[in-house]
Structures are given as structure tokens and as C-alpha cells.
Nucleic acid binder design. Structure first.
Length: 300
DNA sequence: CCCCATGTTCGACA
DNA sequence: GTGTCGAACATGGG
């Protein structure tokens, strides 16, 4: 392993790993976007890439180097699980973090490690994209306007375009699918992932195997819609709101103990509301945790 | 060694 | 065409 400079700035953490052990859903993505904000207004002096890394399967690493070297970072945005960074000269960099990606800033002397597939060296810091499993992806775009794939993203959950009737209609179109499977569909629920889906259903008191058709109207639809918006807003506040000064090694440590999140992986974990033993089983192909008492099975 | 992993995509099949 | 399910992707941790 090559020697690496310990990053003292802007984030001081122990050890050599620049990665945070968290898997990115909407709030974590927004958190990671902010880690690169320190580079806004600064020029990219040099770009490091691991040219054969799978994250370059859509756009070659060399294209990224050529497009970004010498430009300045102007602006960034996160939406759903996507991020978009605008540079001058009409260059745009899109990033999806996949299952294990993370962004972080470090001192400009940092030496890229095995999983640091993209590093933008600015005058006084380095912006790093790390991804051990390489399910993440980068995209490049040139033009005055945002790329088409970005413009085509569905209305964000906290925007006025995300309506209760749209949620109900979407459920009505998949009447026999489990609500757990439906909540993971990015085209209607942008940015929701496995743990957020479980948190939403737990708060709403809905069993994850409940057929989506049963939630297409009435009070259950309202409960579902409300929980989606509340969990999204709360997750953004608790996770994305963490500054860049003292970042915990596990972002989940940020979440309050009365959430399902902090109990879901523990063997023998109990529901923070009812004290009942939590259940873990595979639903829609994903590990799902729920409270058998709070989340009613009888949806007829 | 085994099994597991918070995401997405693709092919097979109803 | 639509919807659903499992496998595959690549790596590390327990």
C-alpha cells in the first residue's frame, strides 16, 4: 500500500481510509455532495483517475480528465441518488454512488488509494470519489443546459410536484406488488432506498408485504404519503445537516434512537415504539425489517 | 471457508 | 406492451 497523507483538512478523521461506512440513499447523497462544496470557485489543476475502474463504463476516464482539467467548479446539486457538478466552459460531471461510493475532501497532498477512482486536485484541497464495489458511475456532459437525464428526473419528494394522488395512482397500477417493492421504484420515489422504505412503512404502520393496491386511496394512502414526506425531511435534517467539521465514521450514528434504523440490524432488536421483537425477512428480494405488532398484517 | 451487504440493470417468463 | 423475479455486477466485512 502506498503511503497516504492523513487528511487534516477539511475533515479530520482517524486512519487512512477516506471512506465513510454508509450506503447512499437520498440524505447520504446530499451529505456527500456537501463534502465537495469546499471546492466551489476553485480551478482543477490536475485529475487522477483509475482508468480501468468500472465507474467509467459510461464515459471513458480519459474523457473525464480532458474535460475537467483546467476548469473551475461552479455549482453542485443533488437530486434523488444523483449528483451534478457544474464546471465552467459548459462542462458537467454527474455522479451516482451506487452501493459503496462516497465523496470526501482532503488535503492536496493526498495520494490516491486503491479505491479512489477519481481525484480532482484543486489548489488547496483534493476532491475524492471512492468506491470499492464500483457499482457507482460517472457521467460527463457538455452544454449550456443541464444534461437530459438530469432534467428527466422525477419530481423530488419534498417538491409540490410530488402529490398524494400521484402516489395513489402509482400504487393502483401495481395492485398486487408489495408496497416494499413499490417504494424502491426510483421513477416515483426518487432517492428512497432500503432503509428509508422500511422506516416509512414502520412509521405509517403498514406491513411491507401489503399489496400496493390496498394503499391506492383512503386513509392508508394518506398515512403512506405523510410518512414518505416526513422520513425524507427528517433524514435530510439529521444526516445531510451534519457539517464537515466532525464527521462520524458511521453516518447512521446520527439518527435518533427512536427511529427504526438504529435497531434494524441488531440481533434481538426490539421496536422502539412497542418493545416487540423486530422481524427480518426478505421481501422484494431485499432484507426487510418491520415490527409485527405496529405494522398490521390485516389489510382487508 | 461461508454468508451478507442501504443499488441498478438485464434477461427470462407470466 | 406490462409487470415480476432472480441473477449479475465487484469487493469487503463479520
Amino acid at each position: 500500500m502506498s503511503p497516504r497523507t492523513r487528511p487534516e483538512w477539511p475533515i479530520a478523521r482517524d486512519g487512512f481510509s477516506y471512506r465513510l461506512k454508509t450506503m447512499p440513499e437520498l440524505a447520504e447523497v446530499e451529505f456527500f455532495r456537501r463534502q465537495w462544496e469546499v471546492g466551489i470557485g476553485k480551478r482543477v489543476e490536475r485529475v487522477h483517475v483509475h482508468a480501468t475502474a468500472r465507474i467509467y463504463r459510461s464515459v471513458g476516464a480519459r474523457v473525464v480528465v480532458e474535460a475537467l482539467t483546467g476548469t473551475s467548479l461552479q455549482h453542485s446539486e443533488a437530486q434523488a441518488k444523483q449528483m451534478l457538478f457544474r464546471f465552467d466552459n459548459d462542462r458537467w460531471l454527474g455522479i451516482h454512488l451506487g452501493m459503496s461510493g462516497s465523496l470526501i475532501a482532503a488535503a492536496p497532498e493526498m495520494v490516491p488509494g486503491k479505491h479512489d477512482h477519481l481525484v480532482l486536485y484543486l489548489a488547496d484541497c483534493a476532491l475524492i470519489f471512492s468506491d470499492p464495489r464500483m457499482f457507482g458511475k460517472v457521467a460527463l456532459h457538455r452544454g449550456v443546459d443541464v444534461p437530459g437525464w438530469w432534467a428527466a428526473l422525477p419530481a423530488p419528494i419534498l417538491s409540490s410536484g410530488f402529490t398524494e394522488s400521484a402516489v395513489g395512482d402509482f400504487c393502483a397500477r401495481r395492485p398486487r406488488s408489495s408496497i416494499k417493492a413499490v417504494l424502491l421504484m426510483q421513477e416515483r420515489f426518487p432517492g428512497i432506498g432500503n432503509w428509508m422504505a422500511d422506516e416509512i412503512l414502520w412509521r405509517a404502520g403498514i406491513h411491507p408485504r401489503c399489496p400496493a393496491g390496498k394503499l391506492a386511496s383512503g386513509t392508508r394512502r394518506t398515512a403512506l404519503y405523510t410518512a414518505i414526506r416526513e422520513v425524507t425531511a427528517d433524514a435530510l435534517r439529521e444526516i445531510a445537516g451534519v457539517g464537515t467539521a466532525a464527521v462520524p465514521r458511521h453516518l447512521s450514528a446520527q439518527l435518533p434512537d427512536h427511529w427504526l434504523f438504529n435497531h434494524r440490524w441488531k440481533d434481538g432488536g426490539t421496536c422502539p415504539r412497542s418493545g416487540t421483537a423486530l422481524v427480518r425477512e426478505t421481501i422484494a428480494g431485499r432484507t426487510t425489517c418491520y415490527c409485527p405488532k405496529c405494522q398490521s398484517w390485516s389489510w382487508e
